Amino acid sequence: MSGRFFIIALHEGGRIQEETWELVSFARRCGTAGPVMMVLSDEGSIERLAGELAHRTGLDVVGLAGSHLREYSAEAYIRTLVPFFRDASEEEEVHIAAAHTSRGIDFVPQLSIGIDACCITAVEDVGEGTFIRSLHHGRFRAEVRADRAKVVVTVLPGAFAPEDIEPGKPGRIRIVPAGDISLSTRSRGTRAPVHANMGLTRAEVIVSAGRGLGGSENIRLLTMLSSLFPKSALGATRAVCDQGWLDYSHQIGSTGNTVSPRLYLACGISGAIQHLAGMRNSGMIVAINTDPHAAIFRTAHYGIVEDLTTFIPLLVDRCLKRG
């Protein structure tokens, strides 16, 4: 991919979000040798954040500074980024990448409209001049080719492993004053989720439920299986939480918890990339599913093609008998 390539680095609490380093790997997979990092913040933090990006990646950094950027808001980002990118000619190729997080999803579609760009979300791989994303819970993959010179994409967390970057020297830093923009909205700050499930992040074994479980009445089977392990917890896909079978505090994936237990038991999970983003770094992944073609088997270390409602009781019974 030719033209200019920009990576928008998101940050929270004064720290660059981890997904930013994955975007560098994504840019290089796109064939871009020297993407430009971008960071937006107020005058008091912009130099420190830009310096961290320049030193860690060795890439050039553009810092957009303004008092209205002290706290994140989609309006602040849009009103700052649109004038910056609108100067590019219609023929010039410009690619802009952000992480597919709650913030990326929040401002990227509006940015694409503001600069008349093609918007492609939830990218998980790249082809020959194309972007690849999953459809229908990972059962299909779409290869998308942009029809405009300007392209804005969001990249799924976990889709591209961050590379070990050893820059020879820090990249150049350019701080651009964004002016004082009066916003029609005001941030009231951020706070941790009320139902944060700290047990998931500390668990050595996670037994996770997918739509293939069949219904809330079968959660007891996973509870039985989980009870075999002393440091275990129950996890779930978003579909399970949407159905109300488990609370959202159990959700694992790009919009839920990110976990890396020693053992991950995926029960009735199809293997959508959004879920894989939250558990792909598990030490060992064992998948149980009736569909031998389920996408989860491409990620799992071991796969079991069986009906959960008959297999799990047999497994629990055998384990209890062996002590």
Results as ranks from 00 to 15, higher is better:
53 L>S: 02
56 R>V: 01
72 Y>M: 10
59 L>E: 04
102 S>E: 06
93 E>V: 13
68 H>Y: 03
84 F>R: 10
53 L>W: 02
85 F>N: 01
70 R>I: 05
50 A>R: 06
61 V>Y: 04
51 G>M: 08
60 D>G: 03
97 A>Q: 09
67 S>N: 09
90 E>V: 15
104 G>S: 10
82 V>R: 13
85 F>V: 09
87 D>A: 14
81 L>Y: 00
79 R>F: 03
88 A>T: 10
96 I>P: 01
60 D>S: 10
66 G>F: 07
70 R>C: 06
91 E>M: 11
75 E>A: 05
91 E>T: 15
66 G>V: 08
82 V>P: 06
50 A>T: 01
73 S>W: 09
82 V>Q: 09
65 A>G: 03
96 I>S: 01
97 A>T: 08
72 Y>K: 00
87 D>R: 15
73 S>K: 02
57 T>L: 12
78 I>K: 13
52 E>I: 04
91 E>L: 11
81 L>C: 09
73 S>T: 15
74 A>Y: 06
79 R>I: 03
63 G>K: 02
55 H>K: 15
79 R>G: 01
89 S>R: 15
90 E>I: 15
97 A>G: 11
78 I>F: 01
78 I>T: 02
78 I>G: 02
76 A>G: 15
53 L>F: 00
77 Y>A: 12
88 A>F: 15
78 I>P: 09
76 A>P: 13
84 F>G: 06
89 S>M: 11
59 L>G: 04
80 T>A: 07
50 A>D: 01
62 V>D: 00
90 E>Q: 15
75 E>W: 11
102 S>F: 12
86 R>A: 14
75 E>P: 14
94 V>F: 12
86 R>K: 15
90 E>H: 13
99 A>N: 04
94 V>L: 13
66 G>C: 10
75 E>G: 12
93 E>G: 07
64 L>I: 12
50 A>N: 00
59 L>A: 07
72 Y>V: 03
71 E>P: 02
87 D>C: 06
104 G>E: 08
85 F>M: 07
71 E>H: 05
98 A>N: 04
86 R>C: 13
93 E>H: 09
62 V>I: 15
91 E>Y: 14
89 S>T: 14
65 A>N: 03
